[in-house]
Amino acid sequence: MSEAETTPGTGTTPNPDRSLRTGPGRLLVAVYAVFALAATARGTYQLVTRFDEAPLAYALSVFAGVVYLIAAVGLARAGRTSRVVALVSVSVEMAGVLVVGALSVFTSGIFPEDTVWSNFGGGYVFIPLVLPVLGLWWILKVHRSDRT
């Protein structure tokens, strides 16, 4: 995971980071954008209207939405920094879906309301679980092909 940071100066090629947002990357950006919108909009709406019911779960939804948004922007922008941004946010997302998923399955009661990450994303056909895996695979694949 620390590969991105330890890269020696390979930024001499004409446009090294363009490839992150083309091809499959474009699909990833689209999916991340939709999830960013869905989670942030829904979470914000619930925080505003029903804060008392489950503030933690709704705040978590908003947080997940922001992470998706950062990942989408990181994947969509060309540049070495944005690749690190994408890598970090996708990793946070991976950790989030695993931790929140495990918590919601094994200790029911902490999250009275469903979030994107509850039950490992089961409410969203498990896309939240698959998405970070695909994201990490893509970022690392582009990263490797750049170095060779």
């Binding site: 083309t22 091809g23 499959p24 474009r26 699909l27 689209a30």
Partner: peptide
């Protein structure tokens, strides 16, 4: 995206 990933989106 002028490749097969356009229809994928």
């Amino acid at each position: 995206e002028r490749s097969k990933w356009g229809p994928a989106v």
